[in-house]
Design a protein around this nucleic acid. Structure first.
Lengths: 154, 154
DNA sequence: ATATCACTTGGAGTAAACTCCAAGTCAAGG
DNA sequence: CCTTGACTTGGAGTTTACTCCAAGTGATAT
């Protein structure tokens, strides 16, 4: 005999289970739902019951978020998803644009990382030989190039 | 004869010149100074006069900011810088820690970018063949692997 | 001399993304 | 029946990083 309580209907997770699975707090999951970042989550007796589908949606959201897509854009994406087949073109557009953004971001990070690596080397040298040993910027950059084979542009 | 006005003392930039050079707004530069992210900028007749030194400081700040170091940490770094030689060890520490963070961030971005690339392929395929052609997740992932030689882990 | 213009200050306001809280509900165990 | 505990809601508060504003100053152009 089928039960209507969420405990018994076989598949579905409570909010606390979803928190464990995703690493989000319950407040954040509720906030995301309110903000339209998740497909409408089913209720049983007033409580949220998450499906595996919901979990995958959350994963995409996480991925988009980690790569810096603002919540408003994620929301837009989710709204497109709900509109089904006819929004595929727009979703493709959105993903392509975001992919380009992510690549740009990675390039920026790469360049900055090089400069930070130089700073690490700089302070290592300064720690051993004193700050005066690295006072002359041009000479220090040249020395860095020689010692590490890497260059850094100012 | 030496003048005391900032226009005549040879080296130094006004805030608007610095804005052009760095891309920041005047408000942001003032905000950064107030927040302790820059060494104390010299004044001439009440106006800020930026040096090349200041410019380099701003560049470092930009670099740290772009890689996600919060302003509070940047402020701490700048305070260490002002303490001279005896803070070199701490500055090294800070830079090393941040470099590790940046590397972690790049790894995350790489993984997410792979998933987004898959989504792009997914919607390209869906656009040509309809959403039903990519309905089965496992089959679609396999097809993606075959067609692109790339894998994506869920 | 006066108007213009870039600058000054302190402080208030904004946007994004949570994060916390109070008050209430609901099912299960003792 | 009563308590417990995980959940519900709406709404207020927080943090970060700016961004804007009003009122004022000081040098230069007409």
């Amino acid at each position: 005999m089928k039960s209507k309580t969420h405990k018994d209907d076989g598949v579905g997770y409570s909010i606390s289970q979803m928190c464990k699975r995703t690493g989000y707090t319950a407040d954040t999951l509720r906030f995301y739902e309110k903000a339209g970042l998740l497909p409408d989550v089913r209720r049983a007796g007033g409580r949220r019951v998450y499906t595996d589908e919901d979990y995958y949606s959350i994963c995409i959201v996480t991925c988009l978020k980690k790569t810096g897509l603002p919540l408003a854009e994620i929301r837009r994406y989710m709204e497109l998803t709900k509109r089904g087949e006819r929004s595929v073109g727009q979703r493709l557009e959105l993903m392509r644009r975001h992919e380009a953004e992510v690549k740009k971001k990675m390039d920026v990070l790469r360049v900055c990382e090089e400069r930070i690596a130089f700073k690490v080397w700089y302070y290592e040298t300064a720690k051993h030989e004193g700050l005066k040993a690295v006072k002359d910027i041009d000479a220090t950059l040249e020395r860095y190039r020689c010692e590490t084979g890497r260059k850094v542009d100012f």
